[in-house]
């Protein structure tokens, strides 16, 4: 049984008007490469739970299994854009400090260095052997535009 949480429902709908158009046809689920390999990840169910503001929506770890392939967005006949709904829910989790640590660390790495991969001397030696310029951290500018406080 789904317990509806009105506050959360309102909050989710505020940023996801399109979600109301979902008629639970399962096109997203049938198109999802993750569901094919792991039935616990079911975009259709994640969408209906989000639509109802179901309490366990935000406790679900399933969100983070999305491959971000965009196939569900592409095929959704209702323009719900399930991938984007999941993105907004993940953003909400992040704002509540509920995102997995590896996502928070990965974000921090980009903001501090400008790159999503750690820059090591091994990488730069390899680049040098191919006559490519060494990588240098260029994160300072990002700090200025991303962090507003």
């Amino acid at each position: 049984m789904i317990t509806i949480k009105t506050d959360l429902r309102r909050k989710i709908l505020e940023h996801n008007e399109d979600i109301k158009k979902c008629y639970q046809c399962s096109t997203c689920s049938a198109s999802c490469p993750v569901l094919r390999y792991d039935p616990d990840f079911n975009p259709r169910i994640l969408i209906i739970k989000a639509l109802y503001g179901s309490e366990d929506t935000l406790e679900s770890k399933e969100f983070w299994k999305c491959l971000s392939c965009d196939r569900c967005n592409e095929r959704c006949p209702q323009g719900v854009n399930p991938y984007n709904v999941l993105l907004k829910l993940k953003n909400f989790l992040f704002s509540q400090n509920l995102a997995p640590k590896e996502r928070i660390d990965a974000r921090e790495l980009i903001i501090t260095t400008g790159f999503s991969y750690p820059i090591s001397s091994a990488v730069n030696r390899k680049r040098e052997s191919m006559e490519l310029e060494a990588l240098e951290s260029i994160g300072e500018e990002l700090k200025k535009i991303v962090e507003t406080e």
Partner: peptide
């Protein structure tokens, strides 16, 4: 040019607004 990470979908999953700011740069 002095590009940074685009940024990627993982970054977007934390905060879409910052994602847009970094891409805009």
């Amino acid at each position: 040019l002095a590009f940074t990470c685009c940024p990627n979908a993982d970054f977007r999953s934390t905060d879409e607004y910052s994602w847009l700011v970094v891409a805009a740069r």
